[in-house]
Simulated scan of single mutants.
Amino acid sequence: MSYSFFNNFVRLPLFLRVLFIALFTIISFGLFVHLLEPEQFPTLFDGVWWAVITASTVGYGDFVPKTVLGRLAGIGLILTGAGFLATYFVSLATAAVTKQNELLEGKADFKGKNHIIVIGWNERTREILHTLCMKNESISIVLIDESLEKNPLPNMNIHFIQGRSNLDEVLIKANIFHAMKVIITADPNKGELHADMGSILTLLAVKGLNREVPCIVEILTSEQVANAKRAGADEIVQTNILTSFVMINSISSQQLVTSFLGLLNQLDKRNLTFKPAVPEVIDMTFMDLSHMLMKEGILLLGIKRGEETLLNPPHPFTINQQDQLIVIMNE
């Protein structure tokens, strides 16, 4: 029994062990001085109070031993209890600093739920994190990256985990089982094909642990889009297509590109979203529905029907039950 107690005791964190020893020492000295000088310390609490004040070297003087044995007990308490208390506070401060360093260096597990996991660090990731934090300050975000040595945005609500995102132990540290969504960005330090292969490998690892979590994956090469879909990508973002569009059109019309980029900037400040087709709008034409939503301050851009996206479809175009409306809503 005693060996089992000692074995469990030594496994406790250092600051808890020191705290228990300090409390045991203070209570023991408080009981001893109460039994030794009952007139000076009428109750056990008075003795414990004196022991706490003496061990902490405050020394109010409201309770003072009169006998030689009582004063010797005070000396012994100062030599032992004060040391244990000082050690406790040092251990507590060390534990706090260690925990803070673990958080900063990406070594601490994430314990929250319904969070967004963003994988990979680059300028796109920086913009994504800033936008997510600005739109919803209460949302929890976990950043996974192996190239960073510490949290790049320590002043934001971002939990950093350092490690390779295709390893189960790293994804488990990010609590992948309770994540709301995963965003996988391409590694800018690799070639396009190797970056896509790394993104798909990470996607496979994520889906292997949590098949239900929605995953948005950045793919650079067109030939890897099909593989990303097979791996379970819910949304695929082909950033090179957008870059090519801007560069090609800038050759023929700089004004068109400037207007397009300005439009993207405006969309970033508004709520571009999907709305399911409610029963009231089924069988309505796109034009009639557009006029009706415009009265509510909602701009109808197009329709998402299955895998096909139709922007401003030709008239007449009838809304079906499975359609999703692509709309811009004012904040």
Rank of each mutant, 00 (worst) to 15 (best):
P314A: 02
I200E: 12
V182L: 08
V68G: 11
I172R: 15
E192Y: 11
L31C: 08
I183E: 00
L242Q: 08
T309Y: 06
K181N: 14
H34E: 13
I241N: 08
E146D: 12
E146R: 06
R71V: 11
K275E: 15
S222G: 06
A228R: 04
T202A: 14
Y3W: 05
G61I: 13
V48C: 04
S4R: 04
G30Y: 08
S259R: 13
H115S: 11
V18E: 06
V327K: 01
S56D: 06
G302T: 00
K150L: 05
S140V: 01
I119W: 06
H159R: 04
F6S: 06
S253G: 02
L272R: 07
L69Q: 13
V237K: 00
P42C: 05
T221R: 14
E146M: 04
I119H: 06
L256Q: 05
T54L: 10
N210K: 02
V118S: 01
M197K: 08
R211H: 12
Q254W: 03
K107C: 02
T239Y: 09
E280P: 11
C133M: 04
P13K: 03
P42W: 04
D323L: 01
L293Y: 01
L300N: 10
V10H: 05
V118C: 01
A73N: 08
G198Y: 00
L167H: 14
G30T: 06
L77N: 06
F41M: 07
N101H: 05
I219N: 03
S56P: 03
N114P: 07
V237D: 00
M180G: 14
F177K: 15
K304P: 10
G262C: 03
Q324P: 01
F317L: 04
A226Q: 15
L293A: 01
Q266G: 06
P38L: 09
I117C: 06
V68M: 14
W121T: 07
I27M: 11
I119A: 09
E308N: 01
F6Y: 09
L272G: 14
V217T: 14
N240Y: 05
L16D: 02
D196E: 10
F274Q: 14
L167M: 15
H315Q: 09
E149N: 10
L311R: 00
F45V: 13
F32R: 02
V170G: 09
G302A: 03
K107N: 09
S2H: 11
P42R: 10
S165P: 08
I241Q: 10
R270A: 09
F177D: 14
F41L: 07
